[in-house]
Amino acid sequence: MSRPIEPKTSARQRDADRTRAALLAAARTLFSTRGFANTGVRDVADLAGVNSSLVGRYFGSKQGLFRATLEQVIDISPLIQGDRRRFGVDVVAAFLDAEDAPGPLAMMILSAADPEAHAASVEMLQTQVIAPLARWLGEPDGEGRAARLNMLWTGFLTMWRLLPIQPLADARHSSTRRWLEATTQAIVDEGGT
């Protein structure tokens, strides 16, 4: 019995999806370890194992690739869909229990020297994290509380991942974890229940 022949568009679409995913994964690695200015389109394509012209085809430019990568890695929505009373525990678990993959914070910090990449980082942080978090937090002062949470998380993640200090070496299992959970939850609870 012969197998049905798949339409060529399906095979092409799967290949395009794989290529796009490979480029995004390579971009995440390079932008978060080298920064925007020190990462070239060819570097990303080489790491992804594809022709560099495909960056232009799928993303338009290196800037478009950077924005698409940020959109992919900055998403607060899974965390704000959970139990509000466990938000501190859940968000800290997302930070500390995740694999050691390159993260969006490193991408944003290492790319701050480029004005366009910096602007994209600030915009994505505002639209993908601050605004949805502020809406979820609600009144009073949802936007202020969202900003305070981001300051807390950014400070912690910077000192734990990017500029590691010895007291945070065991953050996954220490009193630091409990402090971060409690402080995060306290900011969430400022608005009442």
Rank of each mutant, 00 (worst) to 15 (best):
G56E: 05
R161C: 04
G56D: 02
A131V: 13
E116T: 12
A25W: 01
L79T: 09
L133Q: 08
T39Y: 08
A68V: 14
A25P: 00
D83L: 02
L110K: 05
S174Q: 07
P4C: 09
A182E: 14
A98L: 03
R57V: 12
N150A: 11
M108V: 12
S175H: 14
P78I: 04
R172H: 07
S174Y: 13
Q126W: 06
P140Y: 07
A37I: 01
L105W: 01
G191I: 04
T69A: 04
R135K: 13
S10D: 13
L163C: 08
A134C: 04
V44W: 10
G64F: 00
W136F: 05
R14A: 09
D83K: 12
V73C: 01
A48T: 07
D17S: 14
R135H: 11
S175R: 10
D43H: 06
F66S: 00
N38R: 13
D83I: 02
Q126Y: 03
E116I: 13
P132H: 06
Q126E: 15
L152Q: 10
A98R: 13
P104Q: 03
I130Q: 02
V50G: 02
H173K: 12
T154K: 08
A106N: 01
A146P: 02
R178G: 05
G155S: 13
W179D: 09
L54Q: 15
G60A: 02
E99K: 11
L157T: 11
T29S: 11
A169M: 01
Q185R: 05
R85P: 09
I130N: 03
R20E: 10
V91Y: 10
A171E: 02
V129Y: 07
E181C: 09
G103Q: 09
P132E: 05
M151T: 15
G35F: 11
H173G: 08
V73G: 00
F156P: 08
D141G: 12
Q72T: 11
F66M: 00
S175T: 15
A120W: 02
I74H: 04
I76Y: 13
F95E: 05
A27H: 01
R177P: 07
L149G: 09
A113L: 02
A113N: 08
V188A: 12
P132A: 10
G155A: 09
T154S: 13
